[in-house]
Design a binder for these strands. Structure first.
Lengths: 370, 370
DNA sequence: TTGTAAGCGTTATCAA
DNA sequence: TTGATAACGCTTACAA
């Protein structure tokens, strides 16, 4: 008997190779390879036999060998560049990742997921993955207004899809293509994006319809493309309704509860405070609600609140928060599909995700004078 | 000029290989390999020259080739088995992963991270990774009281470390080894764990010290090992103080805000309702606080609340929640280090993470009669 | 339809 | 200290 501490290490448990299958099925290795990869040039009979033997042996292709000969790593990458503290309470990324993997795992493709501190490290990681041939492509998240990544990836020849869309949508931002477009928004990479402009318009429809005329948008990080889109859209919507930019505007934050709360305090302290606030994530919305509660400002009586992105958080506050609901796993699936299409030689294009809808709950109501 | 849509795909951008280096440095391939891998058998002179050339060319080892010959995939795996909806609002996993990667990226080791729906899929994935030789080892999270994974992994010979610890700690649960122990708690796999028993004791010290005698623990999933440890510890602590199990006990949930709220409602409706509730995560704690607020039960006046795990959530409620704070990235680092040690042939053992501390905020106070 | 053989980029084993 | 040379497991021309 081996020492108990060594038990786990004692089993090399040889994995079956194509050679084993060939021997057992009485055919050549190449025949096995052809049979297993659905290639023509093998009789249906042989194919069936090979398949059966492979099944019996529990064979799975050695990913290293396949990568080495076949030019495909069989893996994709996703890097999340966030300062460790900002890793926050968001469910967004886990949901996105889970959607992505629904698509990938059906194709036996692995996902390398890495959290890094900043954009430079992210770029260095792309270089490394490329040089190591670790991945066949990457999903680029959190696109920025000034983004070095598309150029880098194009230069490396590392396939990629931008998830979240560009800062500058097509010629008419309010009417972006709903169908997949052959006309890429970004000149170098395919893009999957959500129509933030339309989403913002929906929120404004709701608030304006309730009678709000002083609406502030507490946005996220100023460098991000979707932040820029939302800010621009708010301005457009304000103009369309003839609202003054002093009363309808955006302020940016780092998405943290602290900055969300701080921004809320400043706004509520001002003369002619807003009657409605739109928060760019759920955490800030809850923090803002809390600030209002702390000052005895009734929500939604004196202040209406909208959260961009729904989560359990929005349902556990009092009152429950009106939120923009989107299908994040679905968005992940779409992104993964698009990257696979690119890898299969599909054209560069821009694909739009499902439009989010506004779930009206108890935190929005007609404004009452304070 | 190529069509713009094809630009990104046009650059094969050949990556340098060891052969290129050999040619340029005027030595053989094997010399290069030796020089680059710090192996003896190469003159310092040659070594330096080879290194310089490799640097110039921006060479990085092809991970597939290395895996194929060297038996090491250079990647580790982490599977998170959660029903898609329960992916919740937890920051725990992203923080854990970010800690893990701090350690791995220094060693150029990649992490395959996968979210799946259930335990069976997780096990199937281990088999696949093993057969594909995708990973050198895995980190097993959410250990359960009845857990098929250690046995499976040991049988496959896939190296692993359990993150989160066993259901049954050493002989005296209140005095587990603080130093790394050569005596593994789990007979098959190394384990990195947090001392939930001591943490629970701290919470009880706090609440009992304030005068609470009716304390309920709203726990998470009943199948998880740490849930079992916390429940057992609560019982021990109750016994030690001569408290009745009808007034001091645990109920289990699925960690969701919905079940947390529901459990809270039931407890508050009962005669002789608890004066303090301990929630096994932040989301349930916030949901519970919200239920209390909805019924006009003052917190902490009539009900004290403690959250197991801190996050932004605990700081944005009113009142801010007393929470058990732990260093999750640090725990991730520890787990990664332990798995690397196992891969390097280290012994099976049990390592304990830092003890969490209780951050007393505004949600706990002496009980007042209702 | 089948089998043979070359090659992918490393590491590792030999002689020189 | 070096440089051929053979693995590793798979794909893929090319012959039979």
């Amino acid at each position: 008997m081996t020492a108990p501490g060594e038990a786990a290490r004692r089993k090399p448990a040889r994995r079956p190779t194509i050679k084993d299958i060939a021997r057992r099925a009485g055919v050549s290795e190449s025949a096995v390879s052809f049979a297993l990869n659905d290639r023509p040039g093998v009789s249906p009979d042989t194919r069936a036999r090979v398949r059966r033997v492979a099944e019996e042996l529990g064979w799975q292709a050695n990913s290293a060998a396949r990568a080495l000969s076949g030019e495909r790593a069989g893996a994709l990458g996703l890097v999340l560049a966030r300062p460790a503290q900002t890793l926050g309470v968001e469910s967004f990324f886990l949901q996105l990742v889970s959607g992505i993997q629904e698509v990938l795992s059906a194709r036996q493709i692995a996902l390398l997921f890495q959290v890094v501190g900043d954009l430079d490290t992210e770029c260095a990681l792309y270089r490394r993955w490329w040089a190591e041939r670790r991945v066949d492509g990457v999903l680029v998240v959190d696109p920025r207004t000034e983004d070095p990544r598309p150029e880098l990836l194009a230069a490396l020849g590392l396939q990629a899809v931008v998830v979240g869309g560009p800062a500058t949508p097509g010629p008419d931002p309010s009417e972006p293509p709903v169908e997949p477009s052959a006309d890429p928004v970004h000149p170098l990479l395919s893009t999957v994006w959500a129509d933030d402009a339309k989403a913002m318009a929906r929120i404004l429809d709701h608030l304006y319809g309730l009678g709000h005329r002083r609406i502030v948008h507490i946005a996220g990080l100023p460098g991000l493309a979707h932040t820029a889109r939302r800010i621009r859209s708010l301005r457009t919507e304000a103009d369309r309704r003839g609202l003054d930019h002093r009363h309808v505007h955006s302020v940016t934050t780092d998405y943290s509860d602290a900055e969300g709360a701080e921004a809320t305090r400043r706004l509520l302290d001002a003369t002619r405070a807003p009657t409605a606030i739109i928060y760019d994530n759920d955490v800030m919305a809850v923090a803002g609600t809390s600030v209002a509660a702390g000052r005895g400002i009734p929500v939604p009586g004196a202040l209406s609140i909208v959260a961009w992105d729904d989560s359990a958080l929005c349902r556990v506050t009092h009152p429950r928060l009106t939120a923009l609901v989107r299908d994040t796993p679905g968005f992940g699936r779409l992104a993964a599909q698009e990257l696979l299409a690119v890898l299969d030689g599909g054209p560069l294009r821009t694909v739009q995700g499902e439009l989010p809808h506004l779930e009206a709950r108890e935190s929005t109501a007609p404004p009452t004078p304070r």
